[in-house]
Amino acid sequence: MDSTLTALAGQIAQLDAVDSAQLERMRHEALTTQAPWKAEYGAYQSGGWWTTSLMNASGDAADVTIGDCAARPTGLLGQMPATAAFLADLGLNFMWVRLARLEGNAFLWEHRDYDELDQVERHRLHIPLHTNSSAFLVTSGTKVHMAGGRIWRLTPTYAHGVCNLLGPARIHLIADVYADDAYRRLARRPALHPAVAEPLPAASQTVLAERLETARNMATLGYTEAAERMLLRLFYTYALPEGTAYDLIAELHTSLGNMEAATRWDTAKRRLLALTA
């Protein structure tokens, strides 16, 4: 494994395979069970991100604000026997288990997760149940499509973003787990197959200038938010230095004479990328 891939595997790794027949049963449950999906809106996403809990502190599927707890099954998991059996077989110490739905044309913009201050070791596992090739994660200028059939571990300390460009909706089973022997057995051989990591092309100054001009045209027509989103989406198309998309938006507003908006986006960049300076 080359050094780039090794570094990337520290961020996102494939663990054990999931039995295909069991995966199909879980997918059927996720697509057909009536669940109380809760929308989460935040500065770092476009909308279209929904979650519902299968294991949590309260046992209420609509309770989706995760935190440390000894998780117990929700009523929803009771209606999903194949998923419940899968989780039981893993034998992990669950903190929280959710279904997460990312709709088509939905984005979690480039951001860095804050490292929690407590010392408890936990890990986030993703089990893709229903996905498509236009749904992927980008980190370090590399695109990773989390294909079905594997348990994936995400440890995103680098700036990263997630998108589902074209749909249909992507549904992942997400389990936050505490480290224990069962977890260490599961994570004994983390790997990242080179075929799943696709480096994005670099963007030349000419390309960025063209995209900025297109954004300026859109903003001049009155489509300012669309222009901003067009620039944010460049993160999913090109390998850009960290924060470039936010810088381009600030540059767009500066060129239009809107210094308040330029400052707002500069502040957003610092917050979303957890920059201290």
């Binding site: 297109t214 045209n217 669309a226 989103r229 067009m230 989406r233």
Partner: peptide, 21 residues
């Protein structure tokens, strides 16, 4: 007067805002 720039922006607008395939 804005028809050319509107048409020029339309593909991006429909992709970004409407999710056109």
């Amino acid at each position: 007067a804005q028809l050319p720039s509107f048409v020029e922006a339309l593909d991006a607008l429909m992709s970004i805002e409407a999710g056109a395939l």
